[in-house]
Structures are given as C-alpha cells and as structure tokens.
Write a protein that binds this DNA or RNA. Structure first.
Length: 484
RNA sequence: GGGGCCGUGGUCGAGCAUGGUCCAAGAUGCCUGGCUUGGGCCCAGGAGGUCGUGGGUUCAAAUCCCACCGGCCCCA
C-alpha cells in the first residue's frame, strides 16, 4: 500500500475548472454570490488570509508602520487632483449616492466614490499631520478592501471588484530616504512571500505600465499554472507627485519648505491566496503550507473489529498531545471509512495526516503521511511533537522548492520574438534581451502577444545579446508573459 | 473597446438543431439504513430543479425571439 503520489496534470491542463472546483470543495471561497466580481470567503480561505495578514502587519509594524484605518469613501474632487492618477483609475471607480426609497438615485452636489486605492483619501490628512521634518518619516498601513469596477472578465481571487489587501503609505524628508524605504518594503514583501513558499519574479515595471501617478513601480509576479502571471504585490515610488497636489509640506531642518517624498505599496491578500492554491496544490486540491494551514494535522483512527475502544483512546491520546502545539483535528466520525477520510482531508489541503490503528496502538507508534508526497513514516509516540514539527518543516521546504523549480522551468530565454510568441502560447514566461528603449518594449507587446512585465529589480541582469526588437546592443532582459 | 460562446437540483452535465413523447437523463455530492473499515468500496432507500431573471411568439417553450443579470473565450 504505497503512498499517494501527487499529480498535477489536471491543474496544468484545465486550470480554470480545477481552480473553481478547488475553491468550493476546499472551503476557500464561494463565487456564486450574485454580484459580479464579489465573492464570499469561506472559513479555510479566510483563515489563510488572516494568517498572512497578521504576519505582514507584524513585519510592517516592526518596521515602524503605524496601523490606521481610513474611510472607504472619497470626494470626487480629492480623487481627481492628481492628473495621472485619475487617468489611470477613473474608468473603474464605483460611485456612491443615496438610495431613494422606491429606487432611483438622488442627485449629489459633490459625488462620492469608493476607494480604488487610498492615496487621495490619506494624503489630505497627511497634509494636516505633517508640518516639520520632525514629523517625518510618517509610515502607516491598513488592511482593508478596495473597490475597482473591472471591465474585463472577473475571476475569483485573481480579478475581483472587492479587493482585500494591505496598503502602506509613507512620507519622507528626502529622496534618499524614500529610496531606502523602497528597499525595505521590497524586503518585507519578499519575506512574507518566501515564508509562504511562493515563487515569483521581482520586476521593475516598464514606465508605460507604472502605477498611475508614480515615478516608478516594482511588482511581484507569481507564476500560475495557466501561464498568466499573477501580480501579488507592488511597491511604488511616488516622488513628490502626490505631495505637491495635496500640499504635503514640511519645514526643513535647515529652514525653508519642501514637499515630502512619498511611497505607497500594496499587498493583495486574495491574489496571494490564489498563488498558494495554484502553486502548491495538486489535482486533488490545495496543499496548504503548514504556517497558514487552517488544519495542520488531521488524525485518522483506523478501527479494527473488537479493538475499537483501544484505537479510540489511543487516537485521543495522540490528539491531546498534538493539539497543544498544532492546529489539530481528530476525525472520529464512525460512519466513514478511513479511506474516505484520507480523501476528504486531502481535498481540503491538510498538509499532514496521522494514522493510528491497532498496529500503532500495539507498538506505541504513529504513522505520519505527507500530503505533498504521500510519503509514510512510522515514528514513536514519544517525541511525537518533535517528529511532527520536523515533518511540517520538511513539507514547507519541499513545497517552496517545488514551486521554485517550476518557476525556473517556466522562464525561458528566447532568441527571436517569433520563438517568444510560440513560447507564450505554451504558457511560458519569456526572457528577452532588450536595449532599454521604451518603443522596443512597447512593440514587444504586440509582437509576442503578451504583457511586458519589466526587468529584474532584485538583481542586475546584463544581456550579452542584441535587443530582439531593434538589434542594437542589449542592456538587460525584459520578462514577457501573459498576465492576470 | 470589438467579436463570439454559454447559463438545466449543491457540483458537473444530457436534452435545445426539427417546440408537444421532459411534472427533465446520468454522474457526483448530501441524508437514512445495511455491509465494510490500513484509500474514498458495495447494496437498499431518500431529499433536492417555477431549466439565470423578466418580457414576447405559440394551442403548447428548457427548446424560438428580445432585454437584463451572471459566467467564459478570442482580438485590440
């Protein structure tokens, strides 16, 4: 009776169907809510999000970010102040008015909008709070939902109209300090994503694709089984673009006034959840990394005629040992066979199963079965906590390793744009030698039928080849792929 | 922004071309009982659908037409 080998053929071949199915059966989210782009987060999905949220918030606060909460609505007037910003978002904001009894909307003198992101809500307050260099840096963060009226097709967790995220906003006295904060923000996000075992590219977006109103943007693109990368987080250097329009000024140490240098960065919880499911899962369902798994260990007793009582109390003993240290569930349903229980919990992503039957009770051991590899290991009851701890750590490492290898496999360097277009068709992420000019980057988009995601931020990648578009000397590599 | 496809119990899905034989097949899931219990088996029974919503055509609509809502795909 060998272990179960994880298969992920269906996950890669029919990702959409697989994903939708998994969301429901693993109790992650229910996308049947009757408003387009909105969904119900079920207990397992929300649990994971909460775990991720707490970890991220902890790291942000450790770095000096103050937790705050700003209103959901903004005046259209404030929202419209920054020219580029409004250009980028206007097409997708929800407007709010008063619902008149009997239907119909009341005319509003000053219409309100739901935040699609909170710059224009926060910065008027920044202007009130900041007057001297001593008030800087100001670093704040909030976890909330933002609302974007997506015109394209929506997709559960990936592209929704209500987006649960964390947004952080900082104001600094100098450009250098702002730059330093960009590095810190990137480090924080990387740390959270790395701890979840996700594999992604850290890219500086091309200028034509930067955040509306930013000087430049850095983004984290996680790979996805269907070949469309999933942007899970972004960091934007706003320069003084927003401080100038919102009059965020401070008195300098040496006298005189200056506008603050600002940053904003966001971390998408639902997309990170999607990445966890998509990267780590297999055909059966999700495999949650132990740190965020709603249930880390499930105990399945294996009864045997005449020895039910013995097995039951043995399983109970294991349960009381483990529950102190792990999120543990004892599946003591009596009308369900062990085999069915295995299947049941596998589909719900529990990373480790503990089997306890007459054999184990007899010898004082337990059988540990890994969800990711199916590997079975018999360990003694004494020292069980440590054994479980170790196996969970192994699972975490091996999920991360598997995701990382997959990313390596997906990224291919191409020598011609035609080849690149072919690779895109196959769902690959193409690495393309590039001269650095915007026009070449722009034409890649149409030549290859995919999005230009940018060049590496985490390393200085020098190209040895000529630019694939114009043929002149290549400076670095652009990453091109389909995207959500 | 342009074009196309689709919507049937919780989920998947047959039926729609040629309207009536559909108070809607099947699978899975769910509930009951039995058998079994180291891989979700097997047997018996059961609940669950105004066929997305509204309007129209017709003696008759899941089936044809229109609008809306929702889902998906392709192109820009």
């Amino acid at each position: 009776m060998g272990g179960l080998i994880a298969r992920d053929g269906e996950k890669f071949e029919r990702f959409s169907e697989w994903f939708d199915n998994v969301l429901l059966t693993a109790r992650i989210a229910d996308s049947r809510y009757p408003v387009k782009g909105f969904l119900v987060y079920l207990e397992s999905g929300w649990f994971v999000i909460e775990r991720v949220r707490r970890r991220l918030e902890y790291l942000l606060e450790e770095d000096g970010h103050l937790p705050m909460y700003f209103p959901l609505v903004a005046t259209l007037e404030n929202f419209s102040r920054e020219a580029e910003h409004i250009k980028g978002f206007m097409g997708e904001v929800f407007a709010v008015g008063k619902l008149r009894v009997g239907g119909g909307e009341e005319q509003q003198e000053a219409p309100l909008i739901l935040r699609p992101t909170s710059e224009t809500i926060m910065y008027p307050m920044f202007a009130l709070w900041i007057s001297s260099h001593a008030d800087l840096p100001l670093k704040i963060h909030q976890s909330c939902s933002v609302y974007r009226y997506e015109t394209k097709a929506t997709r559960a967790l990936y592209r929704v109209r209500e987006i649960p995220w964390n947004e952080a906003h900082t104001a600094h006295a100098s450009q250098e300090e702002a730059e330093e904060q960009v590095r810190r923000a990137v480090q924080i996000y990387r740390r959270v994503l790395d701890e979840l075992g996700l594999a992604y590219l850290t890219l500086r977006r091309p200028d034509f694709d930067k955040f509306a109103g930013a000087e430049y943007s850095i983004a984290f693109d996680a790979w996805n089984p269907d070949g469309k990368v999933n942007q899970v987080a972004t960091v934007h250097n706003l320069g003084t673009n927003f401080s100038r329009v919102f009059n965020v000024e401070f008195e300098k140490k040496e006298g005189g006034k200056a506008h603050t240098w600002q940053l904003c960065y966001g971390f998408g919880y639902s997309r990170v959840l999607a990445a966890i499911i998509a990267q780590h899962g297999d055909d059966l369902g999700p495999i949650f990394p132990p740190t965020v798994a709603p249930i880390q260990v499930v105990i399945v007793p294996i009864p045997y005629k005449g020895r039910e009582q013995e097995v039951r109390s043995y399983a109970q003993e294991i349960y009381s040992t483990l529950r102190e240290s792990f999120r543990t569930r004892l599946d003591d349903r009596e009308d369900v066979t062990p085999g069915e229980k295995y299947y049941y919990w596998e589909r719900r992503g529990v990373p480790l199963r503990v089997e306890a039957g007459p054999r184990e009770a007899q010898s004082g051991s337990v059988m540990l079965v890994r969800r990711d590899t199916g590997e079975r290991r018999s360990v003694p009851l004494t020292g069980l906590k440590e054994s479980v701890e170790n196996v969970l750590a192994e699972i975490e490492r091996s999920l991360a390793e598997r995701a990382r290898r997959k990313l390596e496999e997906l990224v291919v360097e191409v020598e011609t744009v035609e080849k690149g277009a072919g690779m895109i068709e196959e769902g690959k992420i193409c690495k393309v030698s590039w001269c650095g000019s915007e026009s070449c980057a722009l034409s890649l988009k149409s030549l290859m039928g995919a999005e230009v995601r940018g060049y590496r931020y985490d390393m200085d990648e020098r190209s040895e080849r000529p630019c694939l578009v114009c043929g002149s000397r290549g400076r670095t590599y652009l990453y091109v792929s389909r995207a959500y």
